[in-house]
C-alpha cells in the first residue's frame, strides 16, 4: 500500500462519452487510475490490473493505467462516479467539494471493478 495524492479531472475519452455514460467506452474512460511507471512498479501492478484506491471517504476499485506525466506519489482518476466514490466531500464553505489533492492509499487488489450500475446501487442501499 502506498500513500499518494489523488487528482481528478477531465479527459478526452471521458468527455467524448459524456452523454454515453452507461457504455463500455465510458467505463474504459473513467473506471481507471493513472500513475507513472515508478508507482506502478512500487505497488507491483501492471497496466490493466485492478487497484484499490481508498481515502477517508471511501474506497473504489479501478484499472491501473500508466501516465508518466504524473509526478511520483500522484494518481489521477478521471472525473466520474468512480473518482467521486472517494473524493473529499468537504465544500470549503463555498459549495465545491475537494475533487483534487485528496490524500489516498493505493494497492493492487483481486477485487472487481464495479460497473456504473453496481457502483451507484451501493448508494441506494445505504
Amino acid at each position: 500500500m502506498k500513500e499518494v495524492i489523488l487528482i481528478t479531472g477531465r479527459t478526452l475519452k471521458q468527455g467524448s462519452n459524456l452523454e454515453n455514460k452507461m457504455s463500455d467506452a465510458y467505463f474504459d474512460a473513467a473506471a481507471r487510475c493513472e500513475m507513472n511507471e515508478n508507482l506502478l512498479t512500487r505497488i507491483g501492478a501492471s497496466v490493466g490490473d485492478a487497484v484499490k484506491v481508498s481515502t477517508r471517504f471511501g474506497e473504489v476499485v479501478v484499472n491501473a493505467e500508466k501516465d508518466d506525466g504524473l509526478p511520483d506519489g500522484h494518481i489521477f482518476i478521471p472525473m466520474g462516479p468512480w473518482a467521486n466514490a472517494i473524493v473529499d466531500p468537504d465544500t470549503g464553505g463555498v459549495g465545491t467539494p475537494t475533487f483534487k489533492g485528496v490524500p489516498a492509499n493505493i494497492e493492487k487488489t483481486d477485487g472487481a471493478v464495479l460497473s456504473v450500475k453496481d457502483l451507484i446501487a451501493r448508494y441506494r442501499e445505504g
Binding site: K21, F57, G58, M79, G80, P81, N84, A85, I86, V87, D88, P89, P97, I120, R122, Y123, R124, G126
Partner: peptide
Amino acid sequence: PGAHFPGESLRHMA
C-alpha cells in the same frame, strides 16, 4: 449529479 457529486451527496439523493 449521479456522476459528478461525491458519494455522500448521492446517499441522500437515493
